[in-house]
Simulated assay, not measured.
Amino acid sequence: MSIPTRLIAHFDLDAFFVSVECLNDTTLKGLPLAVGGTGDRSVVAACSYEARKYGVHSAMPMKTALRICPHLKVVSGTRSEYSRYSRIVTDLIGAAAPLFEKASIDEFYIDLTGMEKFFRPLQWTLQLREQIMKATGLPISFGMGVNKMIAKIATDAAKPNGYLYIEPGKEIEFLDQMKVSKIPGVGDQTNRELLQLGIETIRELRLANPDMLHRQLGKLGPELWNKAHGRHTGEVNPYQEAKSVSTENTYETDITDLSYLEAELVRMTEKIAYELRQENKLAGCIAVKIRYPDFETTSRQTTIPYTFYDDELIPQARSLFRQLYRKGYAVRLLGVRLSELTAEAKQTNLFQDIDRKSDLYKAIDSVKNQFGKESINKAGGLKNRNL
């Protein structure tokens, strides 16, 4: 029994942050545009194709971007909107696809292997793309091929707002014309090392001696050689919403002290935010739970821009608590839960002051790792320390 040829589609929302900004403010369309901050340490989170013509690119210091493109329009970004549109696209793909992986906030893989028995995969993927564009108004490109790598490279070649199907057996013909930098995972350093070996194109990499590549690049050498031949074994990992993280406390004595309860809320939120950062995940939803002495239990939740920072989560927790709390009533149980956990939103953190904030939280977590989770707490949570 022959093993069916794999068939993978890769979707990528084009210049996602920029596209969302232009959708919400049509005056931005056609401009050299960057999303990010304007502080000394700010970087470009995303940029329009018009800005890219001047050499602007993601992760570039904003100062550099403004120097090479003085008329660059900079917007600070609306993370809540990026989260909202990402959820819409995820739901649309999840409702249609037999098996899909959410690789990032704007990037998806779909495994269509064997689906030709039931429908025409290319036509099905085109229809799904049209459905996404109609529902969101956002441009989206896709590539299709026999593995994730081929599909992703095809998507990059199809941009902006296009599609490309690499038929089985055409992988080498497709790859040979490209520079080695087009291979996912080949960064600036590896690209420089390959250039020093006289290898600039994927064809030259394919024809290189694999033993020489191993000597020069270690185990990366044969891996790249296989990629140059169009080989890639990465699986499409089924998308599942990560489990929530939560903490709650049932008090031996019912609590009526509002300041104590608010301090508890801060402490709990700090605790689970720390746990998120240790797992390198972000939360897209926060909930607060209150139980009264008569065992009546009430909870409320709200979606939020993906984050794992205390200073962004605590105000949300406080707001939910104030909406729920019945003034003058004692509380038997208090809890906080973070859900819609994901590692996908890393790129949403390339905004103003984010480097400074990241450094601060790394320092705080380092102390907590060394001396315990409770070694550092915000002032709002200190009342609990001696109670």
Rank of each mutant, 00 (worst) to 15 (best):
G198W: 11
K357R: 15
E248Q: 15
T253F: 07
F118A: 11
H71I: 00
S299V: 03
K289A: 04
A97D: 01
V74E: 00
Q301P: 11
A379K: 10
S366V: 10
R120G: 01
S48R: 11
Q123E: 15
C285N: 13
K346S: 13
A345L: 09
L341V: 07
Y82E: 01
R291T: 08
Y85V: 01
T348Q: 11
A287I: 05
G218K: 15
T136D: 02
K271I: 00
D359C: 08
A345C: 12
A45P: 02
Y361N: 04
E235V: 13
I199K: 08
S319F: 10
P238N: 14
L333N: 00
D311I: 09
Q347D: 15
P32S: 09
E173G: 05
A363G: 06
D294L: 02
K219E: 13
I150C: 03
R326T: 08
E200S: 15
S76P: 00
L7N: 04
G94N: 07
R326A: 10
T253V: 14
I68D: 07
L276N: 08
Y85M: 06
K383C: 06
G381V: 04
V146F: 03
E171I: 03
R326L: 15
Y260K: 08
L13Y: 03
V43N: 10
Y85W: 02
A157E: 05
N147V: 08
T342H: 06
R84E: 08
E264N: 07
A45F: 04
R332Y: 05
V245M: 11
T247A: 13
L360N: 00
K152N: 13
T298E: 04
L276T: 06
I314A: 08
H232M: 13
I364L: 15
E252P: 12
V180S: 05
L66N: 02
E312R: 05
D257G: 09
D211R: 14
D176W: 08
L33T: 00
I93K: 02
L224G: 06
D211P: 03
K378Y: 15
V288P: 07
E223F: 12
L320W: 11
E223R: 07
E275P: 02
I304L: 14
Q127I: 02
E107I: 08
K219A: 12
R385L: 14
V56L: 11
Q189A: 14
T125Y: 12
M268P: 03
Q301A: 11
M133P: 06
I364W: 06
M115N: 03
D156P: 07
L382G: 09
K102V: 00
L217M: 07
R87K: 07
E204K: 06
M60T: 01
E235C: 14
S2T: 10
T303V: 02
V75I: 07
